[in-house]
Design a protein around this nucleic acid. Sequence first.
DNA 1: TTCCTCGTTGACTGACGAGTCAATCTGATC
DNA 2: GATCAGATTGACTCGTCAGTCAACGAGGAA
Lengths: 211, 211
Amino acid sequence: MATARAGAPDKRRMILDAAVTVFARQGFHNCRVSDVADEAGVAYGLVYHYFDSKEEILNQLFLERWQIMLDAIAEIDSHEHVPARDKLYQVAGFIIESYRNEPDLMKVIIVEVTRAANSFGRLHLDKIREAYDGIAAIVETARQDGTFKADISSEFAALCFYGAIEQLLSGWIFDLLPSTDEEFERSKGLVVDAICGGLEAPSASAPAVSG
Amino acid sequence: MATARAGAPDKRRMILDAAVTVFARQGFHNCRVSDVADEAGVAYGLVYHYFDSKEEILNQLFLERWQIMLDAIAEIDSHEHVPARDKLYQVAGFIIESYRNEPDLMKVIIVEVTRAANSFGRLHLDKIREAYDGIAAIVETARQDGTFKADISSEFAALCFYGAIEQLLSGWIFDLLPSTDEEFERSKGLVVDAICGGLEAPSASAPAVSG
DNA sequence: TTCCTCGTTGACTGACGAGTCAATCTGATC
DNA sequence: GATCAGATTGACTCGTCAGTCAACGAGGAA
């Protein structure tokens, strides 16, 4: 019943997938519900059979994906005796990989939710903050053990780190940066180098700690 | 004539100012042109006497303010023999001061334009990129003289730096961070410390280069 | 075959709000 | 006081679109 027969497509899923495509292409506010229905190859009314409103579709897309990221961050942080820089590399890697694999979905989440905290994203400020908190937890451990500077609070550090990554994704989304696999790969390391190691060159007298 | 008499208010300016208040409070898409007119204490139709459309008001607000910032960045970079870190501190300081002095205007610019590159901000991607370029120019000089790492491109560095600052402003805008004068002041230094110096503590054997 | 449920359809409604416009006001000039 | 230009007014138009709903279809149960 609820489960689709073999071969019978799950219309609800089709609508969600179509919404990703349409929202990414036209923007949430610039598209009609009928655009989503058309893209899904489904009648207009069916959208309202599965969702209460246009917003609920976006909600669904965001919550589904964001939770995966929160879980990933928690998982990454759960391993003990891993240097903070490595953990942050994994976090950056996860986010960048998410974009590489599902650019439209990530574009929608960032453009329409994360960076739209004024309108739609307001509902999800708490969820968004949870991501900062997850990153801050990683930093905090490193502050405690002296690996990271004590005079930059972990919340502040998390904000900078996340901000840099989001700006990076925005660069790809809006074609300010080249979107190639090599760039994605290189950027994972660079963003961590930049934020953890800083932009400044180590003074000549100080030997590099790690290659 | 075009210039208002003494005491006679400049209605055009009043509309722009009212728009800042209304856009900041309700968001550009969630407010009516009549809200702006009401806030300005002016008839609905007058808005269309001075502006072609609702969007043109936002355009105006953005371009006016953004140009000031671009000029400020250029001015900061024009001084020779000033360390890049100091220049970046001035840039961060300028942006943060802008927010401290005119939070509503900066909120509108960031929320409705800079971070809305998908819808409205698309028109202004070039202007936005100019800001990155200005910051990148500062970094590039430092890369040339060896102060900054050569393996992080100046464009990439600029993106991280600007992203961190914008995330910081977003934190204040959405009450994720306390908005006090002390915090603003402290943050100027912290964001530069974080991005230029990095989050990692200098290894014990490497003497700090500067206090 | 009949009934029932639930998925599906798409024409329709109702609200909303950007932008128009004809009328009115103001105050400068002759 | 007659005239004119530009400022000001706000009721109205007109397109758009989210959300509704009555009808239809398909497949299972009795």
